[in-house]
Design a protein around this nucleic acid. Structure first.
Lengths: 219, 219
DNA sequence: CGAGTAATGTGAGAGCCACTTACTTCGGGG
DNA sequence: CCCCGAAGTAAGTGGCTCTCACATTACTCG
């Protein structure tokens, strides 16, 4: 189950792993899936790959950098779950939805992703990664932002300032429902997930409805 | 700076601390303030109090329980900052505010608390405390919930179901803006804090404006 | 084709941590 | 006044991150 480095070498006859860097990221994703981001350790990952505890440091300067690589991958999967294709073709796929309904669906998907792929979501937001140190992570977020922006712009083409404010409000609301759900604030189990996703969707529609207020206090 | 247990004993002549339990919580709050919730360690707290590393275990079964005590205190301070008095008298204090404005102000205060008392906020939401293990923490949250509930009810007295949905949406939105702000998503510095608080307030007003949609999709 | 070099992995270990155990000290109730 | 239990100590276990000197392998270039 956890061969020591020498055992692995005896079995495979190889001294070098081959592609330890990628294997580390894969194993990290798997381990986080089993034990949560809190139970993740470089030592355990090394053990599972049958490699010494010092080996990862040939590929990542520290533990946090490996977590950042996991986070970057998590953002890709996140984007897929939000139904974002390579280019703008995705908006045509569900062309029968109004922009408002599409935005509400994305907010619901945000919450569902957090619950169904919790380890990845935690890697993004609860691993304590200093994102200013890892621009790659921030870059992996861009496609999601872009897709949201397109839908928001379709909704208020006449008001770019309001569009930006609305986009921010939608993300914040989705994120709030998602993190509070993972915190156990709404209970656990599939019902809690579905219910929270629905309420988040409704909140998105409410924000869209009342978006005039987002421009600031009228005086 | 960090007297060993025997040094402290030589200086003070005392073997027993007096009130180590309370001192532990105080020192924990201070240490988290300096190094963040991630840099907190029982060992360091013990060192600062000039007490052996095993001493805390006479008062807390494990590290997480001490953090839970910190979280409970954090909720109290949180409540004060949201302007919640002992009873319902607080709503009269700023009687010239409409219920909507009062709610928007509370959402803004939520964001400002997260930024200005970040260590406490992190103790509440980023310390990985399993809140189901510590009902006390949940209980400390109740006054905040109650104050919010009063203001929301004042707004939609005719619709208790909608009131509950609105309250949840307001909390989620405030929480989302707050956590993303701490994540660095909106930049750093006082301007980012003030701006985010303002946008969160506006979002609250937008939610209130469009609250009809919170009841669910109309079909 | 055959060095020499850079990349990759090992093993040992330093220093931190949480938590345990067996022992010591001391204050307060009988 | 004594003794019992609460509170603290010292030492130790096992885990973790990260470092360093060294071993092994792959690759490049003459």
């Amino acid at each position: 189950m956890s061969p020591t480095p020498s055992e692995r070498r005896a079995e495979t006859g190889r001294y070098h792993h081959g592609d330890l860097r990628a294997a580390l990221v894969d194993a990290a994703v798997e381990l986080i899936g089993e034990r949560g981001v809190r139970g993740f350790s470089l030592a355990e990952v090394s053990r599972r790959l049958g490699v010494s505890a010092g080996a990862p440091y040939k590929h990542f300067p520290d533990r946090e950098t490996l977590l950042a690589a996991v986070a970057a991958r998590a953002f890709e999967i996140f984007g897929e779950m939000l139904g974002i294709g390579a280019d703008a073709a995705d908006e045509d796929a569900d062309g029968d939805l109004t922009p408002a309904d599409r935005l509400a669906a994305m907010v619901g998907a945000y919450v569902r992703f957090a619950a169904e792929r919790r380890p990845l979501f935690d890697a993004l937001f609860s691993a304590g990664i200093d994102k200013s140190r890892f621009p790659e992570v921030h870059r992996a977020e861009a496609p999601i932002d872009a897709a949201l922006e397109r839908s928001v712009r379709a909704l208020c083409a006449d008001d770019p300032v309001g569009a930006e404010a609305l986009e921010g409000a939608l993300i914040a609301t989705a994120h709030g429902y998602a993190t509070l759900l993972l915190d156990g604030e709404y209970g656990t189990g599939p019902d809690a997930v579905a219910g929270t996703a629905q309420r988040a969707s409704n909140a998105a529609l409410a924000l869209i409805e009342g978006r005039a207020a987002l421009r600031g206090p009228t005086r």
